[in-house]
């Protein structure tokens, strides 16, 4: 309860939560407000917003409803954001936990691999993965998760390093608990909160990565993605700039909401560091 009170005391955190709920609402009602396939032809191409009351955000170069694509795009962005973040955190937590708990050789090897991933620009690795495994929704989501795990891994490792010799761990060891039970049953629950907060950063970056891929036409072309629409609008940028402008605002609002919520959670968990 104290946690919630702390969270709701900060205006940016509340604004972030409201924005996130708005995007979530868009995703949930997309199929109900726009039951037709958002990628099907709806009317004359390149209608400005409100030019025809049926299309309040206008239509794109091939006559598809932009509002429908924005609503359905919210689904895609949130889906990719959540699943890719889950993958990244899962890989990061396992690698970080093993490295931090066992130390020495295991730590050395795992950290070398982490370092290799961090030395390689992650967008380039993403390009390689998409080039090799193709660009369907599933492969793109997994690929984004696979390039985003090093930071959570380092965070988990740092937490494990500080926790692994605490009394409750030593007590568990004396009781004869197995390593796996100690790692995932005892230490991990204590190491998780900062990692969960960091997940908001991973999710913000994941949404931005997907939109960049889609903009370059390397993401799945068969789903209504905001990045796809921006890439499409680029061809008519000189006059009908709204085709690119509108989905960009949607991405901005979503990423902003995710970061504000993450920031709010962080401040509520560490009240001492508020404002830093």
């Amino acid at each position: 309860m104290a946690f919630l009170r702390l969270y709701f005391r900060s205006p940016p955190a509340v604004i972030g939560l409201l924005l996130l709920l708005l995007v979530l609402l868009m995703a949930l009602t997309a199929g109900w407000i726009f039951p037709r396939d958002p990628l099907s032809l709806a009317g004359r191409p390149l209608l400005w917003p409100l030019q025809n009351p049926r299309f309040w955000l206008g239509t794109d170069n091939s006559g598809r409803d932009i509002a429908a694509q924005i609503f359905h795009g919210a689904r895609i962005s949130l889906l990719i954001g959540v699943v890719a973040t889950f993958i990244a955190i899962a890989i990061g937590v396992v690698i970080g936990a093993l490295a931090g708990y066992y130390g020495r050789r295991v730590d050395n090897v795992l950290m070398r691999i982490t370092e290799a991933f961090q030395t390689l620009p992650n967008f380039l690795l993403l390009l390689v993965l998409v080039a090799v495994f193709g660009s369907t929704l599933t492969t793109v989501t997994i690929a984004i998760g696979v390039v985003s795990w090093p930071a959570p891994a380092r965070l988990t490792r740092a937490e494990f390093l500080s926790l692994r010799n605490r009394e409750f761990v030593q007590a568990g060891r004396t009781l004869g608990m197995r390593d796996m039970k100690l790692i995932f049953g005892e230490i991990l629950p204590n190491a998780l909160p900062p990692v969960i907060v960091y997940a908001s950063v991973v999710m913000a970056v994941a949404i931005l990565l997907e939109s960049a891929l889609a903009f370059l036409r390397l993401s799945d072309p068969n789903v209504a993605s905001w990045g796809n629409l921006i890439g499409l609008g680029r061809d008519v940028l000189r006059v009908q700039w709204y085709v690119s402008a509108i989905p960009g605002v949607a991405i901005l609002v979503t990423v902003l909401a995710v970061s504000l919520v993450g920031q709010g959670l962080n401040d509520a968990l560490n009240p001492r560091l508020k404002g830093r």
């Binding site: 903009f215 921006i230 680029r234 902003l256």
Partner: peptide, 18 residues
């Protein structure tokens, strides 16, 4: 700063061109 952080760079570039 928060808004800049959330802005997709390619979109900002396109809008700057416009």
């Amino acid at each position: 700063g928060l808004i800049f952080y959330a802005t997709p760079s390619f979109w900002f570039g396109l809008m700057a061109i416009v």
